[in-house]
């Protein structure tokens, strides 16, 4: 550690000022717009939002999708992470590479693939018709299921990576120790593995949940205007209705969800650690 504070600040300030001016100040002004209607400070825009059944539906749907994607990602994540850490070191590295790789590919490209798979003439419909389960293509696109699948594919890698590193950091002998003490696999998972990998689960869960509720591309392509989420609703409010007040309300709700999840989950992780 160096003592010279002035030097330290000189190095830190350019980035902090940049982020504050380019980013924090405009966002704060934007958010205040939702409370400043027709020259008055009021919360009417917020009461309007929660009074509108469409807006409430979209909020509920966004939350539901986020929770569902996170839960399913956690289940698949644990199964995959167990399988990955059981591999030999070299194939483990290769497997992690395969999991990380999709994160580097454009989400537009990754979401586009589902158009091909779930479309009227896509793989799923072709297969269903070949088997004879249906005579004409069923509509899979522009549904919540399509958005769910797209989001899961987009964010699952983040959960898998978090859980793999949590499992790798778990002390080696605890599972055999619990085994020797007579615990069954279910007990081992809930009493030993889950508490020891909680931090990884919380990190992965935060990334997946926040990613899902703030995603634009997937609901835009796979949900369209049929399955609006908060983000696509915000886009419509700005581009179609030119309603900045309402957009600002949605922006604040999104930020609260994102920051709130970060803070809440961090609290859960540290509180249970202390206990």
């Amino acid at each position: 550690m160096f003592q010279n504070r002035a030097e330290g600040f000189a190095l830190a300030l350019p980035a902090a000022i940049f982020a504050a001016v380019i980013f924090i100040v405009p966002v704060i002004i934007l958010l205040s717009g939702g409370m400043h209607v027709n020259g008055h400070w009021t919360l009417s825009a917020y009461t309007d939002f929660f009074a509108s059944s469409l807006d409430r539906l979209v909020l509920w749907r966004t939350l539901k999708l986020g929770i569902l994607v996170t839960l399913v990602a956690a289940i698949i994540g644990y199964a995959s992470a167990f399988a990955i850490v059981s591999l030999s070191p070299s194939s483990r590295g290769r497997m992690i590479g395969i999991v990380v790789l999709p994160l580097m590919i454009s989400p537009v490209a990754r979401t586009y693939a589902w158009l091909v798979i779930l479309g009227r003439t896509g793989i799923v419909n072709q297969a269903l018709m070949t088997v004879g389960l249906t005579d004409e293509p069923i509509r899979l696109l522009f549904s919540q299921t399509a958005v769910f699948v797209g989001l899961l594919q987009l964010f699952l890698p983040l959960m898998v990576i978090s859980l793999v590193s949590a499992l790798e950091n778990m002390p080696n002998d605890v599972v055999p120790a619990a085994r020797v003490l007579g615990a069954n696999w279910l007990q081992i998972f809930f009493k030993v593995i889950l508490p020891l990998t909680r931090e990884g689960l919380v990190i992965g869960g935060t990334l997946v949940f926040v990613g899902s509720v703030t995603a634009y591309i997937t609901p835009a392509i796979l949900g369209g205007s049929k399955v609006l989420t908060l983000v696509t609703l915000l886009y419509q409010r700005v581009t179609i209705a030119n309603d900045l007040v309402s957009a600002s309300v949605i922006a604040l709700i999104l930020i609260v969800m994102s920051f709130g999840t970060n803070i809440l989950l961090r609290k859960i992780a540290t509180a249970r650690n202390r206990a």
Binding site: A15, A16, A19, A20, I22, F23, I24, V25, P26, V27, I29, L30, G33, V210, T214, Y216, V231, L234, Y235, V238, L244, A247, A251, L254, I255, S258, F259, N262
Partner: peptide, 22 residues
Amino acid sequence: TIVSSPIIVPGIVVGLALLRYL
């Protein structure tokens, strides 16, 4: 926190804020 905040605030909010106020 300040330099990390752009990752926490949803991108669409950032884009809109920059458009309207810069």
